[in-house]
Design a protein around this nucleic acid. Sequence first.
DNA 1: GTAGACTATATGCCATGGCATCTAAAGTGA
DNA 2: TCACTTTAGATGCCATGGCATATAGTCTAC
Lengths: 158, 158
Amino acid sequence: MASKVSVETVDLPSFFADLVRCETRLYNALNDRLRERHGIVTSQFEFLRHLRDHPGARVADLAAEFAVGIGATSKGVDRLERQGWVARMPNPSDRRSSLLELTHDGLQLVDAAEGTFTERLAELIPDALKASPLTAAAQALSELRAVLERDQIGMPTG
Amino acid sequence: MASKVSVETVDLPSFFADLVRCETRLYNALNDRLRERHGIVTSQFEFLRHLRDHPGARVADLAAEFAVGIGATSKGVDRLERQGWVARMPNPSDRRSSLLELTHDGLQLVDAAEGTFTERLAELIPDALKASPLTAAAQALSELRAVLERDQIGMPTG
DNA sequence: GTAGACTATATGCCATGGCATCTAAAGTGA
DNA sequence: TCACTTTAGATGCCATGGCATATAGTCTAC
């Protein structure tokens, strides 16, 4: 007999596969709905929502939050700015960066899109899961996320 | 008072945010390691592993499994074929499609990469989570995935 | 057996992200 | 204050995926 008590442990590769497949499908389904109703995709919605909730965030803040490269983030902000949803305000304490904020249109958009997003997400996730099983999953993923962020895991270079 | 008993329920938008952020970071971190050790990325590893475990799968089968468009899948297979890891064998019962299988090199590669993948994944996920919390999450995600697949949620068009 | 519908997938165009690089602006130390 | 290093982010090149389309093979009804 092994000296360790055999503990019920997750099959990590299967867990990862399920994680990625759920993410892909939910993301795609939300994309479809947001695009048809508001002309944006989920990544844009997430940027806008973050800026609504963290006005004055910089490009680097968005990049860190979403674990995307700085370059990609800069381009994403360009696109939102070209649509008139985001404005780059001069940063008085550091002229290299800008403070990002939503325009009036941007705020309108994100508030409307949030309704669509939340509603669609609730449709996508079966009620049967919403109570205990998913609560446990949510707890675990929340902790996992905290650790990954603390250790700066999986940050792209650029 | 409402007639329903108030049940503990997940905050779906937070759950989704955690899900996406965990996926992104784990995927990026695995990419880094697989690229440096084997010259492939996670999506390629997943294609190869699926073909090892389901020899004779067609392009459409891969597309359905991973919820990617057929076109993108076809191009991904092209790349694996150009590297000499996958072969398109004629499908005797339908000349429009091919039966995909790993070459000898492809099999060697996926077996080696699987070690790296599993090892790295175990490093990335804290031991403290591996027992009960993640087991619950794994269970919930597995069920969620099954439902999303059953209902064909989030399949890209092309 | 043949026209028409359907299916599998290959291909082209475009959007997006990674990574490398470039520039401007701060910080730092002598 | 002036070189040197570091930082923020903008930009270019490339790889990849979505979506639309093209093509070839299959199926169906007659």
